[in-house]
Computed example of a mutant assay.
Amino acid sequence: MKKIIVCTYLSLTFFICQLTAQEIYFPPAGKWQEKSATEYNLNFSEAIEFAKSNEYSESKDLRQAILKGFQHEPYHEISGPTKRRGGPAGMILKDGYIVAQWGNTRRVDMTFSVTKSFLSTTALVAKDKGLISDFTEPVANYVWDDTFEGEHNSKITWKHLLQQNSDWSGQLWGGFDWADRPSQEQTIDEWRSRELHEPGTHFKYNDIRVNVLAYSLLNVFRKPLPKVLKENIMDPIDASQSWRWFGYENSWTTIDGLKMQSVSGGGHSGGGMFINTEDMARFGLLFMNNGMWNGQELISNELIDEAMSPSVPNPNYGYMWWLNSKGSRNMENIDNDIFYAAGFGGNFIIVDQKNNLVIVTRWLEPSKLEEFLNIVYKNI
């Protein structure tokens, strides 16, 4: 429940303050109450039509779309599962109620780098549980193998991995860090021999390093991250049982004598989170309400504030959430305090805590996000 204090001025020295309660609705399992947008003096019909008519333009065969999208990466291959996608779908929540929806919101699809925001959430759970003492600690204190050996990698902290500014150097599950989204102006030899940036000083969106974070968290929890997410987040928010989180064919390791798969932080090489629109909206609602779900704290408010703080090298990036703060990715007509998860093919979870809004849109042409949000917000 969020509370608002309304004060009425009576004299120079006295105010009457009335405490009013604004209820946030938390949908039970398998159900979701709807309200007409007109109850809030809102109208999203134009935004819905825009989302439907601006569908992601690449193939619905996501295997083809992935191979085309990353064709300039040397040695790139698909080693995790993929799935043919559906059409545009989405939901808009106000105070937790559905006030707009379109498409098949219960269809399970790949969600690509939106998975990163689920991954960073498992790190917040680890911190809340005391499994990680401080995100500024070197990850080498927790992972005993050679993943963080060497002068450079040994300085990398959890925070560096969460903010994608670690410049971790190495190979994991057959993938080289330098081969992920390399500059087209350099040769392979130049990529391999590049000068490393001091951890924390240079932002680079890089799925290999994201997968290093997933592997490191697997070593901390000592059980598969999908199980961690299910027990601590997805079951408490009454998500469906249809979502799945995959890794790669070769991303297996042994912990405590048990073979476990290390999951991927996206679908760049297949794998990642396969999930429906409604479960994405539940996840967004949890963050809209600062980690509280129906009176139960699942993530501490302080950690969510930390996760949504701009990093030094990239003011538009927190702990694997994109931020609309001032920077190169700022959407100037949208409130600077919103944050969002974003994935290949136009998958988005937008969280607006000021207006108690959660917006999920899937398979929207990525370049159209700002225009779509401008339509959503023009009467708010």
Rank of each mutant, 00 (worst) to 15 (best):
Q353K: 12
E302G: 14
K127P: 00
I4V: 14
E297Q: 15
D95E: 10
G174K: 06
L124A: 14
T121I: 07
E149Q: 08
N356C: 12
L286Y: 00
R84I: 15
V263D: 04
M110V: 12
N165I: 07
E365I: 11
Y9K: 03
N314Y: 10
G271I: 01
M331Y: 11
V263W: 04
M292A: 05
Q241M: 06
I24W: 01
V6K: 06
P315T: 06
Q296N: 08
K159V: 09
D146I: 11
V210I: 14
K159Y: 09
W243S: 02
T147N: 07
W32D: 01
S262Q: 02
E332Q: 10
S216C: 13
M320H: 11
M280T: 07
F287Q: 11
H197R: 14
G174P: 06
Y25N: 12
E332L: 08
W168H: 13
D128S: 10
T187I: 05
S183L: 14
G267H: 00
P313K: 03
V360N: 00
Q186I: 01
N41W: 03
T13N: 13
K3Q: 04
V263P: 04
I350H: 05
G30K: 08
V220A: 07
Y319E: 12
Y25W: 06
D207R: 00
E332C: 06
A51M: 05
K368M: 09
